[in-house]
């Protein structure tokens, strides 16, 4: 039998913050695609489940000079993810095929070390069993399993879409997928086309070029986590926010 070795890829996205206007389409598409349940009445921005969450930050200036920027933040798919080494269950690893950081909820025991370790607040804990209104379970996506109470979950670049694209390629006798077949739900849903997605290791891909452009940056680069989610903005004050903790800032502003 021939070896089933596959080509290594590092999937990444570049989000153009000058295009994003904070409509929330990405966060909505993500929840629909990944069977993320609606909030319980008591849930808030700390206990909710938002694999893709849009944070607002501002230039801090007074009206009318005040301007906003919206940061869509999902799992940053770090090259050196702080969440992997802390997991006592081996429920987190980095896929060598895609570079995606996994989170296997059925393996998770719910200790939440990974949530503490993640500097991007991109991991979410199921405080409750998922509940959809009666009948709405018929609208769930069969390609993604539903999680239960007591486990952690997060974005995996719509891995089921990668699996489907691989299967499609394999059916055609190819090992490598067609880039057009693998597009995460948030990328597809963005009305402003603000997100470029692709293989960072493919120098011809749009994402490889964008990630190298002058105004591209990553969040909290000083930590050395090497995220594969890049942002770009032509506004200097937006780029300066890269080292601020946008998630913590907003939570503080809203929760007092």
């Amino acid at each position: 039998m021939e070896s089933a070795e596959t080509t290594r890829a590092r999937f990444a996205m570049v989000i153009d913050l000058d295009r994003c206007n904070g409509c929330g389409a990405c966060a909505t598409a993500c929840a629909v695609e990944n069977n993320v349940p609606p909030a319980r009445p008591s849930a808030n921005e700390r206990t909710g489940l938002t694999w893709q969450r849009v944070y607002r930050a501002s230039n801090g200036r007074q009206f009318p000079e005040n301007r906003s920027v919206y940061f869509p933040v999902s799992c940053q798919q770090c090259e050196h993810p702080p969440c992997v080494s802390v997991c006592p269950q081996n429920a987190v690893d980095v896929s060598p095929e895609t570079g995606v950081v996994s989170q296997i909820p059925v393996r998770c025991l719910g200790c939440r070390y990974c949530m503490t370790a993640c500097p991007y607040h991109a991991r979410y804990f199921n405080w409750f069993d998922p509940k959809w209104p009666d009948g709405m379970e018929t609208t769930l996506n069969p390609d993604v399993s539903v999680r239960m109470r007591g486990v952690v979950e997060k974005c995996n670049f719509c891995h089921s879409r990668w699996q489907a694209a691989k299967a499609k390629a394999a059916a055609a006798g190819k090992r490598d997928l067609d880039p057009a077949d693998y597009v995460p739900a948030c990328v597809e849903a963005c009305p402003e086309k603000a997100i470029v997605f692709g293989n960072l290791d493919d120098p011809r891909s749009g994402v490889a070029k964008s990630a190298k452009s002058a105004n591209a940056f990553r969040l909290l680069e000083k930590l050395g986590t090497e995220p594969k989610v890049f942002y770009r903005s032509d506004r200097a004050w937006v780029r300066r926010l890269a080292d601020a903790d946008v998630a913590v800032q907003e939570k503080e502003a809203t929760r007092g």
Binding site: G22, G24, A27, T28, A31, V32, V36, P37, P38, A39, A43, N44, E45, T47, G48, L49, T50, R53, V54, Y55, R56, Y70, E250, K251, A253, T254
Partner: peptide
């Protein structure tokens, strides 16, 4: 599911 925008995040 739009609680993602109105309740579970500050968007």
């Amino acid at each position: 599911v739009l609680t993602k925008l109105y309740q579970e995040s500050g968007l």
